[in-house]
Design a protein around this nucleic acid. Structure first.
Lengths: 123, 123
DNA sequence: CGCTTGCTTCTACAACTGTAGTAGACTATA
DNA sequence: TATAGTCTACTACAGTTGTAGAAGCAAGCG
């Protein structure tokens, strides 16, 4: 079944908004987009239509208004994007990616130490 | 300078081959593509031309033959793809991504334990 | 009832991608 | 020198993506 779904950058924005709150109308989705994302309303509708035809989103009517619901699950989508990246960007190896994680500012010393350890007794 | 480089799927394949061995001619790159990737030679040339115009790759001539060299560094490219994914797919948070890593088959029990630990003493 | 508002469906259109084919140039070879 | 092989530079062309405008229809308002 529809697992190997490929979302474009803009589609991710919309899906993220929809996962955040759903079911949702296009207007509500608009509200849930990141601050810096300002699209014409019809742009959002276009993206939604594309997602519907991909079967990533379900559309139903409440009167004249469309109400959207994710069909694709967030976890599923994330996992698939993650795998794709590991394969394409890191040529299938987790370690180099974890190496980048270890460089992240956000980590505490504690975490960084654990991650190092994890990577070390790798080789 | 040119850091926020965006590579397409096919371009990643080419860059990976080029990083693996360089400088390289188009023929050599062809050799270094994954087994399952069989492109017409001119397809590779087209992709290389696009990468050259993006300044991800440098082209020089050896006689009549073009020789390519990466300009974009692998680590740089990886980091940037990684960041993009964290932001777009994981909405800026590392932990859910590490959660996926923890589910990976490839990890040893040992590693998985460390990763869990790392994630736990998070919040 | 005509106007404003809000939502919908269609249509648009350029840039980017995936994937080549073609024709011209040069070289080694029979 | 005619022929085959290998490059290169151009051209092609459909599908995807980003981003939206236009026009049509229903509901509330004055």
């Amino acid at each position: 079944m529809g697992e190997n779904m490929k979302l474009s950058d803009s589609e991710w924005q919309v899906m993220n908004a929809l996962w955040r709150k759903h079911p949702a109308t296009a207007r509500e989705i608009e509200q849930n987009l990141p601050e810096n994302t300002k699209w014409a309303y019809t742009t959002i509708k276009t993206l939604l239509a594309r997602l519907v035809s991909k079967k990533a989103v379900a559309e139903s009517k409440n009167g004249n208004t469309s109400v959207y619901e994710p069909l694709l699950e967030k976890k599923q989508a994330r996992k698939s994007a993650f795998r794709t990246m590991i394969n394409q960007v890191f040529e299938g190896a987790l370690e180099p990616m974890l190496g980048l994680v270890a460089e992240e500012k956000k980590l505490s010393e504690q975490q960084r130490r654990l991650l190092k350890e994890l990577l070390d007794n790798e080789e």
